[in-house]
Every structure is written in structure tokens, then in C-alpha cells.
Design a protein around this nucleic acid. Structure first.
Lengths: 267, 267
DNA sequence: GGAATTTAGACTGTCAACATTTTACTTACT
DNA sequence: AGTAAGTAAAATGTTGACAGTCTAAATTCC
């Protein structure tokens, strides 16, 4: 066996590993329509990689090779590039000129800053919403919280998390500030990454929806201060689930000793 | 003269108009080095269009044709595309699928939301900075304010505006939250566009740097509440220079009557 | 045996031609 | 005349090939 043949096999194994991480068999061609199918594929690619990153099936630092992804999804490298740019916009991947894209590995400071930013922005959103929420909107929010609770009760964690995100986004929407809502979208997209990067293992992953209903009731009473405090406490609770205790020593040590794998699922 | 010839001329005139708006003669080839010259050209393109948009030499709604820009800067359309994507990231241009890019035309609501967001974020930044600013940093900030004042005194408005922006950015930097600093960068980039879009004509454009020094002194005393109030008042003052009084009726009317030019500098 | 240099392979960046969609004009019809 | 369908040009989207850059294995020299 020549060296190039060995290498070829190694590469293919790596691609296979990423393929399984992404849940892609080899070529998932959608309905036979070659019409606007590319845009759909682009969105699907974004969603798949997005979810894989948030689930840590593609751990921070994993290299995302354009050619491999292009082959996996059976699209041109240009499409891959666009998707990677979109992911980079949300800071889920990092684009290094001439050196490819990797899954973002948020630092401890970044994680703290992110939660601080969420407290700032969601605080402002809650303050705003308390003054202008309508009864119909309150009903809508209560439905969301209820659905979330039921999802968790049924053990459907994924659904619960989705509904939890929807709750936060609905609040932003109703606050009526599109700019802040946009920023919050970016923050929400990044939150699971930092949560999973630094979470202590055996802990409940969800926004405690009990806190969600507390926030909602505070909003309903029109007491802005109480509502803002409840939201900030909620986010503080989330942050405190992490172990952001600057245990970088060990991480750095691992890197220094060459024991840290830059591409965990690749050989 | 055939119709196609007439059209050709019209197109060339349009390109010329954009060229002069961008301050580009025909082909500005940098130093003979074909080394990393492309990246430099990409940055220059970004800067030129950026400034042209903020100066309203390219008014909101102006179409930015890829081919025209590619010809003007003597680069490939791919490069143009990347630059347009970067500009879209800051919401200075809008990318409409299959229909090209246009200079963003922020709505009245968007402008108000933008200023509200700035008050929220810069309020948090000031609150944070008041607790942790060092004497050295205070000195640095005082130098910035002083330079800004002198620039205005000499009548160098452009320099003054640049220094004003630097002041806001320096505050964000010193607050130590990279996420909020990043958001503020985006907001600062968009502010001049909405200012110019809705400014009442004869009014002083600058951040009154008197207010800057007031903010700075409040920070220096360590009184967080006063500092935050000063910053919010400063931004409120900026916003109040606009006429955001929902005079959309006239604008909409113009559009409805077909009197509104989508591409102001094109024939 | 270990470190620096060389060299082959892989990957990203760039480009120009091709395909598709939009746009605006012409032409025909009511 | 005004409107609507049809058509040609222009602009955007896509593709595959080529060029430059980085990575890493292999060789050579201490």
C-alpha cells in the first residue's frame, strides 16, 4: 500500500465521521425538482451544521473542510462557503484566512461576556415589554410556557429547549425593538455552544421553566423592576450552571503537552 | 443611433456617476505587487463604499451592481460579492436574492430602535466602566476628547467625527465586554446612515463634545448613575436632531405616484 | 537519534465561462 | 391610447478549472 493510498483512506474515514455527525448519508437529494432546490439545500446545510455544533457532535475546534462538506451534501464549494459565512456571522464557526473554517471555541471570558450581554439586552426588553404588553400577547406567552412545561414533563428535552428559545424570542418580538431582537437572536444562537462547552456534566440543561412563568407573571402585574430582576436572575441561574472558573490551566496544559486534539473526531 | 447604443451610453454614464461618487477614476492599481494586493483592494473597496454610503454620495436605495463595481475597481465579481456581504453584515446595504444589492434605507422605526439600542448598550457600558476604569484609562479618554474638541475648533469636521466614534469605541473597549463592544461597533456603523437619512438640514452634525467631556467627568467621579444618565441624554440629544415624526405619508405618496426615484444618481 | 530543510499533497482563494432569473423594451391587441 | 403578452439584453447565480498557500510527511544533515 502506498502512502497516498493510506492517506486517502484516512481522509475518507474523517469525512465519514463528519457525515455521521451531521446525519448525512452521502447525498441527500431532495425532491426531484432542480428548481429552487439549491437554496433549500443551503438552508438544510446551515441547519444541520448548526444543530451538530450546538449538540457538540462537532466539538469546538473541529475543522470544517469545504471540499468534504461539498462532497457530503453534493453541492458546489461556493454553497459551502456561503453557509460557512452565515455560520461565522453568528460566531458559531471561525473563518481563518487561508486556513479554513473551524467550529468556534468560545473562551471563558467570551462566555461570561455573552451572558452579561444577554442580561443587559433582555433586561431592556423586559422593561420595555412590561409597559406595552397587551392581554392577547400575555395569553400567547402563557401558552408558550405551558407547552414548554408539558414538553419537559413528557421528557422531550429537544422540544422543550426549542420552546424555551421561542419564549425568549417572543418577548423580544413583542418589545417592538427590531435591533435589539436581532442582537438577541445572535446571542441565543451562541448560548448553547458556550453552555455545552463549559457545562458541568450532570445538570439539567433547560431554562427552568418555572422561572419563565415567574418572569411572565411579573410582567403581567406591570411591575417592571420585578420583571427585570426576575429575568436577570433567570439568566444568572443559567450562567451559574457553568464552571467558568478559569480552569484554563488544565486546558492549556493539555495543549502544551500535545494531548489536546484539534480535530476530535478526525484521526 | 440604435437602441442598444443608446442604452450602452446610459449605462456608462451611470457607472461614471457611481465612479465619481466613490472617488474612483477607472482602475486604481495599488503598488505593482500582485502579492496580497487583493485583500488590500477588498478592504479599500469596503472603505470607499462605506464612506460613500455614510456621506450620502450613494443615497439609500441606490443599486450597487456587481459588474459595474467589478469594472470600477478592476477586480473579479467574487471580490465585489464578498465586500457586499460584509456591508450587508453591518446593514449598510441590503441583499435581495436575484435582485442585486441596494444601499439600505432604514425606516423611521429602525432609526428609533437603533438609538434605543444604543442607549441600552452604551448605558450598560458606562455603568460597567465606572466601576473599573483606571487613572491611565481616564487620561487616555481625556486626550481623545481634547483632540476631538481641537479638530472641531479647526473646522475639521471629518476628523472630529472620527475621533467622536473613537471615543465611544474606547469606552466600549474599556468596559471589557467584547460582545457588547461588537454590537456597539455595528450600531456605530449604522448611526451616520440614519442620521443623514432623517436629519433636518441646517444642524450641527457632531456629537456635541461638550457632552462627551461631561460624560467623562461623571465617570471620573465614580457616580455610575450620573454617568449613565449623561450618556443616555447625549444619545437622546443626537436622536432629537432627527425629524422622525412619521412624515412617511409624503414619502409613501411619492412612491405611490411613481415620483420616487429608486436609483437617485442613475438616469 | 533529533532538528532543520525540502518536497509532495491537500486545501483554500481566484477567475472566467455558463445557466438562470430579472428587467425593460418592443409589439400586438382590446 | 392603454394594457398585456412576448422578447432581448443585462444582471445575478452557479459551476468547474486553475493558482497560491498551508500542512505534513520524508529526507538530509548535524
Amino acid at each position: 500500500m502506498t502512502t497516498s493510498e493510506r492517506k486517502k483512506i484516512a481522509t475518507e474515514k474523517a469525512v465519514d465521521a463528519q457525515a455521521s455527525a451531521l446525519g448525512v448519508a452521502l447525498v441527500p437529494p431532495p425532491a426531484g425538482a432542480p428548481k429552487g432546490a439549491l437554496a433549500a439545500m443551503e438552508d438544510e446545510m446551515f441547519e444541520r451544521i448548526h444543530e451538530a455544533v450546538l449538540d457538540h457532535r462537532l466539538p469546538p475546534g473541529t475543522k470544517l473542510k469545504e471540499t468534504a462538506l461539498a462532497g457530503l451534501f453534493a453541492v458546489n464549494r461556493n454553497i459551502v462557503r456561503k453557509v460557512l459565512a452565515r455560520l461565522a456571522h453568528f460566531k458559531l464557526v471561525e473563518l481563518r484566512p487561508n486556513r479554513g473554517a473551524v467550529v468556534a471555541s468560545p473562551s471563558v471570558e467570551e462566555s461570561r461576556d455573552l451572558f452579561a450581554a444577554r442580561r443587559t439586552i433582555e433586561g431592556a426588553i423586559i422593561d420595555c415589554i412590561t409597559r406595552r404588553v397587551t392581554p392577547a400577547q400575555l395569553r400567547e406567552l402563557r401558552v408558550l410556557v405551558k407547552q414548554e412545561q408539558e414538553a419537559y414533563r413528557r421528557g422531550e428535552v429537544r422540544t422543550g429547549l426549542k420552546l424555551s428559545i421561542q419564549f425568549h424570542q417572543a418577548l423580544a418580538e413583542m418589545a417592538g425593538n427590531s435591533v435589539l431582537a436581532d442582537f438577541l437572536d445572535q446571542l441565543i444562537a451562541r448560548t448553547p455552544l458556550v453552555l455545552l462547552a463549559y457545562r458541568v456534566p450532570a445538570r439539567d440543561a433547560s431554562c427552568s421553566n418555572d422561572e419563565h412563568s415567574q418572569i411572565l407573571e411579573a410582567v403581567a402585574t406591570g411591575d417592571a423592576n420585578r420583571a427585570v430582576t426576575a429575568m436577570k436572575a433567570h439568566l444568572q441561574g443559567l450562567e451559574s450552571q457553568l464552571n467558568l472558573r478559569e480552569e484554563e490551566q488544565s486546558t492549556d496544559l493539555g495543549k502544551i503537552l500535545g494531548l489536546h486534539r484539534a480535530e476530535p473526531i478526525l484521526p
